[in-house]
């Protein structure tokens, strides 16, 4: 327990239970349990247990090196001929559906748990909102898009290298994902996030623990005004951080869900540009 933790635990016990179950308002070691913690624990153990069992002990292509099995093993989604049918044990793809179901429940419970804890600590809901963005990505790729296309086989295989293969094939399947505008925005935000993170981390580290030298927030502001012309400020940088990261994930949702449902050829998607109405009247070529 941290030095100041007892006070906040007492405060948390005094918060009336609304969404969460007051009975389970307990801590196991450092972890808060709660109703959603129990749900997350059960389904998390079930799902990851099933995955490890399949990959390490059932996969017909397994080697006798467990680390190698972990890296190259996979649970493939149901074959295309199954469509959206829910397959049962023994049939191909059952374990994929099982793990995806367990993972989805776990992720949802984890988000609810973050909401609970935010309530107990009397702080805002930004953390569960950010986690919900990532959860929406999982749901979009593994559930919504397969349903839109009418086949579970559209989901990605659950495996370390296997999902990289899927990603590669997915990009080239729609001719070239680099031409997907939402992919482009998503990647820009991804690199932008790393850039913002690097700048913020470096800025705080460069000014931290220099109070004795008279270094304050004002020095950071002056530094940014000097070299960049603008200092976004202590609150602004975190708002930028939150939205850059969240938008990155949401844009990638768009880029996945539009592929195959609406747009088949991301290169050909840009055909409209050359023949857009605003170019008419100019003589070319």
């Amino acid at each position: 327990m941290l030095s100041f933790e007892a006070k906040y635990r007492q405060e948390a016990m005094a918060v009336p239970a609304r969404a969460s179950f007051g009975l389970l308002k307990i801590w196991i070691g450092r972890f808060y349990l709660g109703f959603w913690g129990v749900v997350a624990l059960i389904f998390g153990v079930l799902g990851s247990g099933a995955w490890f069992w399949q990959v390490l002990f059932v996969d017909p292509n397994r080697t006798n090196n467990p680390l190698l099995n972990f890296i190259r093993g996979q649970i493939a989604p149901p074959p295309p001929e199954v469509g959206l049918a829910i397959t049962f044990d023994g049939s191909k793809g059952f374990w994929w559906l099982f793990v995806v179901f367990c993972a989805t429940v776990t992720f949802f419970a984890w988000m609810m748990r973050q909401i609970d804890i935010s309530r107990l600590l009397k702080i805002g809901y930004q953390v569960p909102i950010a986690f919900g963005a990532v959860l929406s990505s999982w749901v979009t790729i593994q559930i919504v898009r397969p349903i839109l296309l009418g086949s579970w086989s559209e989901g990605f295989p659950l495996g370390v290298i296997a999902h990289l293969d899927w990603l590669s094939a997915f990009g080239y399947r729609y001719y070239n994902f680099f031409y997907n505008p939402f992919h482009a925005i998503g990647i820009a935000l991804l690199f932008g996030s790393a850039f913002v993170l690097s700048l913020h981390g470096a800025t705080i580290l460069s000014a931290a623990r220099k109070k004795s030298e008279g270094v304050t927030e004002e020095n950071v502001n002056r530094f940014y005004w000097d070299f960049f012309g603008y200092s976004i400020g202590e609150i602004g940088i975190h708002r930028l951080a939150f939205w850059a990261a969240v938008m990155c994930v949401l844009m990638s949702n768009l880029c996945f869900v539009l592929s195959g449902t609406v747009v088949q050829d991301w290169s050909g998607f840009w055909n409209f540009w050359d023949y857009a109405p605003w170019w008419s009247g100019f003589a070319f070529n």
């Binding site: 001719y175 290169s267 050909g268 840009w270 055909n271 023949y275």
Partner: peptide
């Protein structure tokens, strides 16, 4: 546009 798109002349990929 339809003709050119089919020939792959228009579009980003060519």
């Amino acid at each position: 546009l339809a003709n050119l798109a089919k020939f792959g002349i228009a579009g980003g990929g060519n």
